[in-house]
């Protein structure tokens, strides 16, 4: 299981971080072993008579302590320099690459692909698709409280702070799925605020992007059509938008192409029909405190909604 770990790097940046970590760990472990060995030796060392060291012994001990202190300083200088050079190896944010605006909200992520051409601006939620092999600049915002974006396989974390914009550069080596989650305590459901990064070959990414930009086609019959009607005419559309339908709520995650997403409610549940039904039946039982209310829906209505939402591929 390696899909959220600082020790399982899948990008050049994360590898630099892991290398630095192992370098520190090796040296620190050696130091710790030496100190404990010295302690054990001191414990076993036979005591000397008297309460105070004779002067020549004091001098000898002072020299040893002095030398060890100098060694400590030296090691710390090496550590500081190694940290500094690792930091320098990271690219500065580049505004000419693919830019993705990530907005942290209680307790989900809004993702918006920036583009000068408004028709190419793409909004989704709780997952990010990136092309492999090239840097992607994340523009980090928050609208309510502080969150922190952390996908350890790809990069260290960076806070999302209301009133400020932070940047983080991601670059994946190879295609894969990487999980991350909010790392700054942000209230009730801080534990269930995950984000998934899908690194794809450039062609696959471009295909995904083109598809994601297109509105969903509305079903024209069967349970799914009933579900679409419920979605637009009941509480759902107050908060959620689906491109291609009349639903245009802005406060919850955009649900366009929801059926193609991996998870429900920011990584809380895998996106299956059964899980979606469970989620719709009582979101507060699954993610207590989330802003999605429990809507009174009959089982058939719920089934219709599930059919509709899962069909939004």
């Amino acid at each position: 299981m390696n899909w959220q770990s600082a020790l399982d790097p899948h990008s050049a940046n994360a590898r630099h971080l892991a290398d630095l970590f192992w370098f520190f760990t090796a040296l620190c472990a050696a130091i710790w072993l030496l100190v404990v060995a010295a302690l054990l030796r001191a414990i076993r060392h036979p005591g000397l008579a008297g309460e105070q060291d004779p002067p020549e012994r004091q001098l000898r001990k002072s020299r040893i302590v002095g030398a060890l202190t100098a060694l400590t300083v030296l090691i710390l200088v090496v550590f500081t320099a190694a940290s500094f050079y690792t930091t320098r190896s990271f690219a500065w944010p580049d505004m000419n690459t693919l830019r993705i605006k990530v907005t942290g909200q209680q307790w989900w992520w809004q993702v918006e692909y920036r583009n000068h051409d408004a028709s190419q601006v793409l909004t989704t939620a709780n997952e990010i698709h990136i092309p492999v092999g090239r840097p992607v600049t994340l523009e980090l915002h928050a609208t309510d409280v502080i969150h922190s974006f952390w996908v350890p396989d790809l990069m260290g974390k960076q806070d999302l702070i209301p009133g400020r914009t932070n940047y983080l550069t991601l670059q994946a080596d190879h295609a894969g799925v990487y999980r991350g989650q909010c790392a700054e305590f942000c209230g009730l459901e801080h534990a269930r605020m995950a984000i998934w990064v899908f690194a794809q070959e450039p062609s696959a990414f471009e295909a995904w992007r083109r598809h994601a930009l297109m509105p969903n086609t509305m079903p024209d019959g069967g349970a799914a059509a009933k579900g679409a009607y419920i979605f637009v005419h009941r509480q759902c559309a107050s908060c959620h938008a689906i491109n291609g339908s009349d639903a245009a709520g802005q406060t919850g995650p955009d649900l366009t192409h929801f059926g193609a997403r991996a998870t429900i409610a920011a990584g809380t549940l895998h996106n299956t029909a059964a899980n979606l039904d469970r989620w719709l039946a009582d979101p507060q039982a699954v993610k207590p405190g989330a802003n999605m209310p429990k809507v009174d829906l009959s089982a058939p209505d719920r089934a219709a909604l599930v059919a509709f939402l899962e069909g939004l591929k």
Binding site: Q235, S238, K294, V295
Partner: peptide, 8 residues
């Protein structure tokens, strides 16, 4: 009534 739940 169809836009918000009773609780809301």
């Amino acid at each position: 009534k169809n836009r918000l739940t009773d609780q809301q």
